[in-house]
Nucleic acid binder design. Sequence first.
RNA 1: GCCGGGGUGGCGGAAUAGGCAGACGCGCAAGGCUUAGGACCUUGUAGGUUUUUCCUGUGUGGGUUCAAAUCCCACCCCCGGCACCA
Length: 827
Amino acid sequence: MEEYNFKKIEKKWQKFWEKEKIFKTLDNKKKPKFYVLDMFPYPSGSGLHVGHLKGYTATDIIARMKMMQGFNVLHPMGWDAFGLPAENFAIKNKIHPELAVKQNIKRYKEELKLIGPTYDWDREINTTDPNYYIWTQWIFLQLFKAGLVEESFEPINWCPYCKTGLANEDLEEGRCERCGSKVEKKPLRQWKIKITKYADRLLEDLEMLDWEEPIIKMQKDWIGKSEGVEFQMKIFLDNKETNKKIKVFTTRIDTILGMTYVVLAPEHEILEKLKNEIRNFDQIKKYQKEVLSKSDVERTKEKTGIKVEGILAENPLTKGKIPVFVSEYVLKDYGTGAIMAVPAHDKRDFEFAQKFNLPIKKVILSENSNEEYFEGEGILINSGEFTGLETKVAREKIVKVLEEMGIAKKTYYYKIKDWVFARQRYWGEPFPLLFCENCKKRILEKKYKEGEFNKGELLNPGWICVAEKNLPVKLPKVKYYEPTGTGEGPLANIKNWVITRCPKCGGIAFRETNTMPQWAGSCWYYLRYADPKNKKELISKEKEKYWLPVDLYVGGAEHATRHLIYARFWHKFLYDLGIVSTKEPFLKLRHVGLILGPDSRKMSKRYGNIITPEEICEKYGADALRLYEMFMGPFSQEIAWQEKGVIGMKRFLERIWKIKNKIKKLKEKKEEKNILSILHKTIKKVTEDIENFKFNTAISQIMIFFNELEKGEVIDKGIFELFLQLLSPFAPHLCEELWHILGNKESIFKSKWPQFNESFIKEEKEKFLLLIQINGKLRDRVLIDSDLEEKEIQNIVLQREKVKNWISNKKIKKIIFIKNKLINIVF
RNA sequence: GCCGGGGUGGCGGAAUAGGCAGACGCGCAAGGCUUAGGACCUUGUAGGUUUUUCCUGUGUGGGUUCAAAUCCCACCCCCGGCACCA
């Protein structure tokens, strides 16, 4: 008999699918749509490994099932090719990024095609294509015009190796996420996008998403909303009241009576205002410099600080005067940059108080009295009129008192910072902005016509938008693109590109030489797939309405606090512009767990444990690879690669191949009830499990069904076809081959997905297996007629030899009976 | 440190509105086939035991229940996220 030649079969059907354009997505609005999306890869130089294919296989399975269920499926693929990884690869290998990206894409595409995916390559996109990034620039311009982009010179994270500024999101434990270098703080001219303006909506709308709870939690924590109270404290010069005040923010206003000192961030502006009054101002200045030179990680190591000599702050409730400190543990850019310190009920304040020998006053009764500090809820003590109140109640009462004094309000702060959007690198989208000295002057001197400048231009005097008709601002082709390290991008060296004319005044203007960060292109790519060839707009209204939002989005959890926040932000902005009609881009999100190397470590060149799809497809075939990756275990879980597992799948496919000559077209359909029952159970389980990302148990059920089929002398053709359909999303090539061998002319993926019939599953059983427990332990089991009464069943059970032996002559206390299942005799 | 997720045979993992622990696959063992090996087929496979028997078993220790991998309390370990956010 002919062997299972997987190579021949797989090549044959991949060609067939491509030629027949089976997976071509038409904008067929008569059918219901299903948009399933993979997070698109950045094509790095090292190619794909088997881990990358796990998510892609899963979406492919779902795409195939949805097609068969009658959906119009959009399942596209593209390349996120701008950014540091691509550029660093290019520099290292001395090859121009444009060329490197081209080569890498070619390789990625070949490797992806190995598993026979359903991608419609006519919709392929590439973020570095001017026809694509014209719209990235266009969206940026809209953000700019809306006043959501601002030039800033503040110190930001700077990677000395990559020679660029980075956003908070791009750090891992104080190191550059890309190269691992320690990040420094460096003052730098940069563009910030005001994502904080959308913080509340980014938080609220998480409610409407079908995302896994841990990912939602990560986003919530990253946005980090804290609700509390902001109140003013008077400042005294020794014992003389001044007109200066310090604002502090706290989430625990109930502990205000326990405040024993106040701490300011070293950079707090009030220090400058009081420099003549503060006796040790020079010392504080010096401390401030020290702290600013430290990285965020170094700042957390110990609690240093200095007392601000000469001034005191007044607790508004007690009128008590307390000392003021500066310390690095208070951050300037969170809350008001000043805190009320309550060492008895806050760990950090406690540590600081210990070090500086400051009084610790308990104001909440804690159950465990030898605790050094107590951060929980409880009953107030030592709190005057508030003593005896519960903390929760006390918070409300105290706020009210302070509000009546006119010095406090309830408020909240976010942890999320505005998005540092500029990179001092070559390989990214150029900003569609120009700088014009003349216009800057006119704006500052208010010598311009009403409406001449937009909101963004007025906000950033001198920066002028490139006219939309002149987009895209193409990234110039250059020979030298290494980062400069000066804080300017490499583009600054290309004089004839930089120097241009100002569209407003006609004078000389200079182009912005920074480029956009890697994340820019991925913020909106899912929109482009729905309308990839549109030259007039980024997406037509009609196509947006039909295809959006994305029904299912699959990718790694590492994007939880970056891409997934940025993309949601841009989507909401586009919603405000009326370009998209949904508040959220991705309805359902599932994250894929890593495949680890055979040594249980992350697959990496460093460990030499990379398994490539080429070698596996060569040895065992794409279907075996797909099947194994889905069978390994729960989809979102990290699991180590075991080559033996693929062999097992190959073996399973071979058994299916071999069973061909047992298949007969049975005229009389007198299938055993048993087979029909398993068949329908399998249809149900496979359909539901695919929907719920439980691919491992779906495959297990398919195997159970197959094991049963294999036992028979003959297999009914109709039943075997149903079996093939159920398996086809997982092992498309083999199933397509067998489907045709059985005489079908059309692709199996044009066939209709099997339906199950509940009545076959439930099937009225005449008998059931009763479990017999004695004192809760399983001791016996017996087949019982389903229509017997409880009493009759009891009699049967008690007559059984085994049961009699166990009970002998003990007195039965009670008998628990669960219908159709179990009986438990207790004595 | 705080917040998530998780700990089940030799291995990957099944089973949670509490009700046969170990489905399915890998590995291993015995037998068949074969000159032989591989492949393939059949059977067995949690550990122990006095082996048609009973005992013990889902990270550890307690608890609730007729009955717990599943619920409650305390603790240990692994993975991920955050990193002084007031």
